Computed example of a mutant assay.
Amino acid sequence: MTTATAELLTVPDVMARLKLGRSKVYDLIRSHRLASIKIDGARRVPAEAVRDFIQKQLTEAA
Rank of each mutant, 00 (worst) to 15 (best):
M1S: 12
M1A: 12
M1T: 06
M1H: 07
T3W: 08
T3G: 11
A4N: 11
A4Q: 15
T5S: 15
A6Y: 10
A6M: 06
L8A: 01
L8S: 00
L8I: 03
L9I: 05
T10R: 14
T10E: 12
T10Q: 13
V11H: 06
V11G: 04
P12F: 10
D13R: 07
V14C: 04
V14N: 02
V14E: 02
V14D: 03
M15I: 05
M15G: 01
A16Q: 15
A16S: 11
R17Q: 15
R17H: 05
R17E: 12
L18I: 01
K19E: 07
K19S: 07
L20I: 03
L20V: 05
G21H: 07
G21N: 14
G21I: 03
R22D: 12
R22Y: 11
R22P: 02
R22S: 09
S23P: 00
K24P: 00
K24L: 09
K24E: 12
K24N: 12
V25H: 03
V25Y: 04
Y26G: 00
D27L: 13
I29F: 05
R30Q: 14
R30W: 01
R30E: 10
S31K: 08
H32W: 01
R33L: 06
S36H: 10
S36A: 15
I37C: 12
I37W: 09
I37D: 08
K38F: 02
K38L: 01
I39V: 15
I39H: 09
I39F: 08
I39D: 15
D40P: 00
G41E: 12
A42G: 02
A42N: 11
A42S: 10
R43Y: 02
R43I: 11
V45N: 04
V45P: 03
P46H: 07
P46L: 05
A47N: 06
A47M: 06
E48I: 11
A49V: 04
A49H: 06
V50C: 10
V50S: 07
D52S: 15
D52W: 08
D52C: 07
F53G: 08
F53R: 04
I54Y: 10
I54D: 06
Q55R: 11
Q55W: 07
Q55S: 12
K56P: 01
Q57V: 07
Q57E: 15
Q57A: 09
L58P: 01
L58H: 11
L58G: 05
T59Q: 13
T59V: 13
E60G: 12
E60M: 13
A61L: 10
A61M: 10
A61N: 08
A61K: 14
A62I: 12
